[in-house]
Write a protein that binds this DNA or RNA. Structure first.
Lengths: 140, 140
DNA sequence: ATACGTGCAAACGCTTTGCACTCTC
DNA sequence: GAGAGTGCAAAGCGTTTGCACGTAT
C-alpha cells in the first residue's frame, strides 16, 4: 500500500547541454505551466531532433534540483512550473488553466498543522479551485 | 494548451448494485486513502468476479456525486478519500502515506485569495509535506 | 578517455472504453 | 421492457527506459 519513493542513482555531476539549457529557458520564459509535450514542441523549434524522452529526463532532473516544480492536479498529465519560489495556484475547473497567485505565502500554516500530526512538516501546497474570469464571461 | 474538462453524458438516474454498494462501503470503512487497485482487491473478497473497470467507473461516479474525493499527489496513480467532508492532508515524502488532519478548515483563505485573482473561487486544497513519525524513527 | 546525455522506439502502468450480456427499476 | 451497470479484454496515453551513439568535461 505504502508507495516507497523510487530511489534512482544520480550522476556524480551534471553536464551542460544545448537540450537542457533550451528546456530550462522555455520553462523560465513561460507562465503557462506547460505540459512536457508543450515544452517538447517549443524546444523543437530550436532543436528539431530533440526527443520527448530527453524532455522528460531533464524535467525530472530540473525538478529534483529545485529549478522547477511538477504540478499534478488531476490524474492525467503533469504540468511544470518554471518559478521555483514558493507560491500558491488558482486552478480553473472549467478550462484547466492554472494561474499563479501573488498572495503572500503563509508559513504559519505549517506550525498550525504541526499541532495535528506527529510528522515533521517541511512544506505545504495550497491550491484554489474555481472558475477563471474568461470562463465566467462565456457562461453568461 | 488549456485542458478542456471532458464532458461525458450521465445516465438519467442511478441504480443500486451490489458492486457500487460494496465499493462505497470499502471506501467508507478505510482511512488508508486507497488506490483503485487496493479497493478492487478488497471488494473482490466479497464479489470475486468484479472487474477493475467497474471499480474505476464507480469511483468516478461516486466522486462526481461528492461521496468521495480523488487525491492526485504525484503523477502516478490516484488515491481515493472516502471522507467527503472538507479537510486537509499530510503527505509523507518518504513512504507516500497520506494522513487526514483534524485541524479546522480555514475558509478565510479563499476570501484572501480572491483579492489576487479575477476568478471566482469555490474551494481550496491544502496539503502539507514532510516526514511521518514512522519514517523519522527509521532514519535514526 | 570517461561517463553523462541523447535519440529512437519499445515497454510500462494506470485508466478508459467498446461490446455483449445482466440486472435493477 | 428499457436502459443503466457489469465483465472482459483491448485500447489509450502520458511517462519511463534500454541501448547504441554522441558529446561535454
Amino acid at each position: 500500500m505504502a508507495t516507497q519513493q523510487s530511489q534512482q542513482r544520480r550522476p556524480r555531476f551534471l553536464r551542460h547541454t544545448r537540450q537542457r539549457e533550451a528546456i530550462l529557458r522555455v520553462l523560465r520564459t513561460t507562465h503557462e505551466h506547460p505540459t512536457a509535450d508543450w515544452i517538447y514542441q517549443e524546444v523543437r523549434k530550436e532543436i528539431p531532433h530533440i526527443s520527448l524522452g530527453t524532455v522528460y529526463r531533464n524535467l525530472k532532473i530540473l525538478t529534483e534540483m529545485g529549478e522547477a516544480r511538477e504540478l499534478t492536479f488531476g490524474s492525467s498529465y503533469s504540468r511544470y512550473d518554471g518559478d521555483p519560489t514558493p507560491h500558491y495556484h488558482f486552478l480553473c475547473d472549467e478550462c484547466g488553466k492554472i494561474e499563479d497567485l501573488d498572495m503572500p505565502v503563509m508559513d504559519s500554516l505549517e506550525s498550525q498543522a504541526a499541532e495535528w500530526t506527529d510528522g515533521r512538516i517541511t512544506s505545504h501546497r495550497l491550491v484554489f479551485h474555481g472558475v477563471c474570469a474568461e470562463c465566467q464571461k462565456q457562461q453568461q
